[in-house]
Design a protein around this nucleic acid. Structure first.
Lengths: 260, 260
DNA sequence: AAAATATAACACCAAGGTGTTTTAATATGA
DNA sequence: TCATATTAAAACACCTTGGTGTTATATTTT
């Protein structure tokens, strides 16, 4: 069991509690107090804060994460999942980008982890519709940032729609780095039609395409098919991929690499 | 002389000190200590903080603002000037917007003050290229937010360029609310060509147009002519406008109003 | 009604911010 | 160049604030 690291601030502990709750679904207050080594009162206070933010729901003596469908696809929610794996994927993905190139990043959390790693590669042109990436890139000197506009979706913290698609159609970039919601067989899937539309446009606008995908997304499916893995020039996956899936990819001729 | 209002936090006082320094250019540490009613030591500490941020430069016994040309046109810099007047202008400007309409906001600091005031007017569609406005609007429920993409300019914390212009040309909105860098006679001027281009496109895309302009900008000029004040359906100015300018506007038939 | 859980009230503690005093560094004038 | 005055920095103590735990009171469950 992961020992709860000593939180040095209230906000941090609340984040840790939330992460823990996402993993286990729900918990008793007693257990949380013991696990994070604070009093019951403090747990109460933390959970009240989290529930005011709409992150959890309190019952009598227990809490559970607030898992409406809406929430589960929230940017804030997704950004808490498998953070370490995504960061490693992003780190390896960043190595595919070379100084002087133009890079297209999608709205995924994985891409937003990649953004700050591009600082060293200046001069560089980065194009993205993700607000999180934009916020990080705007502070980096030497990076030319092109923002993609469109209709803003809070669920993804990014802009989509016709306006966005048309803009992308006017671009041609060196490399596009995307993620996907699910992979079944050698097909990549995405939940939302608006997101699918933009990712497709991005793929068409790039000379090289890279897919970053967490192994936990394999064997699942989502509503919209984005592309085959063979359509990508490179697919990066973390080390948790099952042997069957590995064999499948090899047989299909997918150019993939497992990081670490 | 404006009495320095009691700051309730260190960061706030540092902001106030910076604002003061922007107004007066430079000052002795003694004067600052007296003016803000703190000890010399605290002034030292505040100024060290500000100089580490590159905002001011310390000399022996005095400070001056770090006024490179770059800095003077920075978004952060401009956003400190005449904050109160701009907020009042924004408040009155917000009254021109009606529930259910579509609103175009430019990249100005004045417009960014207007953004949070739109929360009550839902349902509402807001379209802007200013990151500051976007950040504020994205948290408001009931507001449909359309972001305008393009090449990001750190100087204005917003996106401009051909991509942005083309996007705007595909839009038609109820009302556009803009600001300008300077007004000479009845002509409104803007410093930067990229900004001018986008503001012009915004004017063309709107049925009603409103200009928010601080009285301190009258009698000055800037590189690019944006439009005549008569081209705007309404011009809002704070109460500091000189009688000569008032007469000039009246004679020219400008539909203007002085707030408060 | 009794047990369990939630909230409120209060006291305590740690951290950051401030002022005073002391010491170091820098500028000024002969 | 040196002595002196002025300013900067360091050290320390005080105060305020936000966070925490304990105890007491209220609420909910069973």
């Amino acid at each position: 069991m992961k020992k709860a690291s000593k939180a040095n601030s209230a906000a941090e502990r609340q984040q840790e509690i939330l992460t823990h709750l996402i993993e286990v679904g729900s918990s008793s207050l007693d257990d949380l107090a013991h696990r994070f080594d604070v009093s019951l009162m403090t747990v109460h206070r933390d959970l009240t804060t989290l529930s005011l933010q709409g992150m959890v729901v309190k019952h009598h003596g227990s809490v559970s994460i607030h898992s409406s469908n809406v929430f589960e696809s929230n940017f804030e929610f997704r950004s808490l999942l498998a953070v370490e794996e995504k960061k490693r994927l992003a780190a390896v993905g960043a190595q595919e980008v070379h100084s002087g190139e133009s890079v297209l990043l999608d709205d995924s959390t994985t891409a937003s982890f990649l953004a700050p790693l591009l600082a060293d590669l200046e001069p560089l042109t980065v194009i993205t519709n993700g607000l999180s990436s934009i916020e990080q890139l705007k502070t980096l000197p030497g990076i030319r940032l092109i923002t993609l506009g469109g209709e803003y979706y809070p669920k993804f913290n990014a802009s989509f729609g016709l306006l966005c698609e048309q803009t992308i159609q006017n671009l041609k970039v060196d490399i596009a780095i995307l993620s996907a919601s699910a992979v079944d067989g050698i097909e990549a899937y995405v939940q939302d039609p608006a997101v699918t539309q933009i990712k497709r446009a991005m793929l068409n606008a790039a000379r090289r395409t890279v897919l970053l995908v967490h192994s936990g997304k394999f064997g699942k499916t989502a509503l919209h098919r984005l592309a085959s893995l063979t359509d990508f020039d490179l697919v990066l996956i973390d080390h948790g991929l099952s042997p069957e899936h590995q064999r499948l990819l090899e047989e299909a001729g997918v150019n993939f690499r497992q990081v670490e």
